[in-house]
Design a protein around this nucleic acid. Sequence first.
RNA 1: GAUUCCGUAGCUCAGCUGGUAGAGCAUAACACUUUUAAUGUUGGGGUCCUGGGUUCGAAUCCCAGCGGGAUCACCA
Length: 573
Amino acid sequence: MSIALSEQEIIRRESLKQLRALGINPYPAEAFDVNAWAQDITDNFANKPEAYQNVVIAGRIMTRRIMGSASFAEIQDSTGRIQIYLKRDDICPDEDKTLYNTVFKKLLDLGDYVGVKGYVFLTQTGEISVHVRELIVLSKSLKPLPVVRRDDEGNIYDAFTDPEMRYRQRYVDLTVNPAYKQIFVNRSKVISSMRNYFNAQGWMEVETPILQPVHGGAAARPFATHHNTLDMPLFLRIANELYLKRLIVAGFDGVYEFGKMFRNEGMDRTHNPEFTAMEIYVAYKDYIWMMAMVEECLETVAKAVHGIPVVQVGNNEINFAGPYEKLSMYDSILKYTGIDVSAMDEAALRETCAELKIEVNPTMGKGKLIDEIFSAKVEHNLIQPTYITDYPIEMTPLAKKHRTKDGLVERFELFVNGKEIANAYSELNDPIDQRERLEEQLVLAGRGDDEAMAMDDDFLRALEYGMPPTSGLGIGIDRLVMLMTNQSTIQEVLFFPQMRPEKKARVATADDFINAGVPAEWVPVLNKMGFNTVEELKAGNPNKVFNDLGGMRKKLKLDITMPAKEVVMAWFE
RNA sequence: GAUUCCGUAGCUCAGCUGGUAGAGCAUAACACUUUUAAUGUUGGGGUCCUGGGUUCGAAUCCCAGCGGGAUCACCA
């Protein structure tokens, strides 16, 4: 954080001091209870004008139009904007016109929070407005907000669009671009409607460890950390699957968890290092049952957000009402490439990949090769919700072997708009099979596959005690929200997407300057003059610095004592 | 990780073949009692992302770095 302030910031700090000098607390402690909101007033005033004769509203000043002894301003609260009308002699009925002439016209700025008491009326031009009887300062804003202007047709001028600033300063983004708040409202609806649906079925929301000694349940590189007291390595979870299954072993019928997962991998418009997943496990069910459940669940979610199960995503209208198309992995490849890979061995698959011009590497096993073909040739075709079922056993160490088809497992993934959003199995509950499958993963790891799954002995011990037949499902919540809100990047559905750290200007702390003998009030002035460290200052010309300090004092109209020349000279010793 | 584009006032952006940095809004001052992208007049405001290089002279050209976007690769 730079110490040097812009001209506008200095002016606002000066206004803050003057408010205090007038006996006005710019950050009052008392609650300010409102009884009306902008949206409510604009929607309902015409029908019930008598209900809006004593309104109390609060929010930020977003525009201001001053015309002598009358002014208009717009107040933005959580629901929108409403115009207020201030008349000098109404808010200052006595001789003292300070509140209007000084406080409102001079000391308040765009972005300040104020409270307003008054009555709603219609202006000559027909705009619903609040005629202010009383104006209360609630919070002074010291940094100017970007000003986004809109005209009558809703055209936007000077939009605040820089993605970097929008994501780093989401509070500014959502203040000046309030339309984006709807994405997060809808995100909340997605999660709450899903939670309500699960609870209605009698399943229980649980929490499982985020810090895990073994990172299991998925194939991904983890974030590693360390616990000091136990002096042991711990990993941020890449999945919670193995813990939820332990709870099925423990005797719960249905458990689910919404939670953050952490994967130490690339970032792009569909990947953030931490993301939200929902996993659910239901005992005595299989993946066929799960498909019907997902259809019902997603239809419920789509209706909660849009009122109907049809969602516009880009150029596609996606219909979340089931049943969804079902296609086996092998059939889907056959359908989109004309090639039957179901009987191929690893060598034949490599040859097929070469023919299809798909890049592969030697660490890839049979399952991975099939997945490559699927990703390259099939995935992007799956626009309407489609289940891809019955995966090769090699890619899926935690799913149960297919009841009738050798070499496959009972698994489906749900694809929508060309992207995977859900993954489900008939869960593997044969402890001996599970141990062998995890051992095969260790072999893959030995070949150099750094995402092969790790062995979890405690999980295997749990299975040995016995887990009922169970079906499990994972849904990527961020990607589901992207679909439900028609967004093409994950950053738009996360309040605070991961960013590289902001570059800090090389700035010494104020204390460093004070230790060098500089009075505290002059430190910002030196910063303003371009001296960000004591070393830079000492490298300067003492006489020039002394003269410039006087210049800055005059220019910035600073009301602080000029240091004696000897004092300034001492800074350079 | 690769390719490519971008980084100039609080915000949105101009700035040509290199010649002392511009606009609109915001901000400051004055005027104005129903405006609404308010208006009129007059001011102030800049580490041109950082560091090197070329040059008499760099916001501009070259190199490196930092940050961001897009595309691709990777990615259950």
